[in-house]
């Protein structure tokens, strides 16, 4: 359980980091290292070089952009969890963060690292896809932006080029009477989710005016259920409305299986957790101040 030998470099600028990654295709970016280091310890990853981006000034800080909140990719998950801005403007992310690993991994793990790693069971990518956020990355050629729905291409696979550094992750902010819900089932506290589901709802004049719901864990990539939103916007979101709206979209989900949980079980749990998340979000939105 010891990593193979590699070279450690800590560039002081983003452009220097991009140049190193372009010159060595076996180099890997490290920030928090909470997934990469165990992969290296098990020799599932053997990078030639680790490019430590954790202290790059370009990757630091949580920014209030009005219609969105963006995170420098190296923002520690625990710092995001402690942020008042996140609690106020991104209640869904605030609800999801305590589910990310354990506090001792959140203290090192980064927001950008979780997104770049693209574990299908990861909570931050689920919230990012559900809220239709976006990802910013830099290569030696410049900075590019990618919508979350196009970024995650499969389990542990993303649209991020090999020589890119993920620089920012941006979550849209909703205003008005907003409520959220987040639920997850796993074997042990903070273990990988069999299924997770989250929802954010905005109410206006007693009916749902805006809705986003997504399912993660057990699906190859976090999946936003747009058909549910279409069915429920304009309704009062009764429990029966919610159940009816979830039926077909959950039945159509591409559910994965393993020796821990069957496809049927995960699908049942996905439907139930999505319903709970929607009910929680509805109740919170109705109770919220405008």
């Amino acid at each position: 359980m010891k990593a193979a030998a590699f070279e450690y470099v800590r560039p002081v600028t983003l452009s220097e980091a991009c140049a190193i990654l372009r010159a060595d295709e076996d180099a890997r970016v490290i920030a928090g290292g909470q997934t990469l280091v165990p992969m290296m310890a098990m020799r599932l990853a053997r990078p030639s070089r680790l490019v430590d981006v954790a202290r790059l000034p370009e990757l630091a800080g949580i920014a209030d952009e009005g219609a969105a909140v963006s995170f420098g990719a190296a923002t520690r998950q625990l710092d995001a969890e402690k942020s008042t801005l996140v609690k106020i403007k991104l209640p869904l992310l605030a609800a999801a963060l305590p589910w990310v690993g354990h506090r001792p991994t959140r203290s090192r793990g980064t927001v950008g690292g979780s997104v770049a790693n693209a574990d299908p069971a990861a909570e931050i990518p689920l919230v990012l896809v559900t809220l239709a956020g976006e990802v910013e990355f830099a290569t030696a050629d410049g900075v590019e932006t990618c919508a979350a729905r196009d970024f995650f291409t499969g389990p542990m696979m993303t649209a991020l080029p090999q020589d890119a550094v993920l620089t920012r992750v941006r979550f849209p902010v909703w205003s008005g009477r907003v409520g959220v819900g987040f639920h997850e089932v796993s074997t042990r506290r903070s273990d990988f989710a069999y299924v997770s589901a989250c929802a954010q709802v905005r109410f206006e004049n007693g009916v749902c005016a805006q809705l986003a719901v997504g399912v993660g864990g057990g699906v190859p990539v976090p999946t936003r259920l747009d058909a549910v939103a279409q069915a429920l916007v304009g309704t009062a979101m009764s429990d029966a409305d919610i159940d009816a709206a979830l039926e077909a979209p959950v039945a159509a989900l591409d559910i994965m299986t393993d020796h821990y949980a069957s496809t049927d079980y995960r699908r049942r749990v996905a439907r139930e957790l999505a319903a709970r998340a929607l009910r929680d979000a509805r109740d919170a939105a109705i109770g919220a101040a405008a």
């Binding site: 800590r10 490290i30 290292g33 909470q34 165990p38 001792p104 991994t105 203290s107 090192r108």
Partner: peptide
């Protein structure tokens, strides 16, 4: 924090 998940160099 997990000291096994950090390299001394970090």
């Amino acid at each position: 924090a997990r000291s096994c998940l950090m390299f001394a160099a970090q």
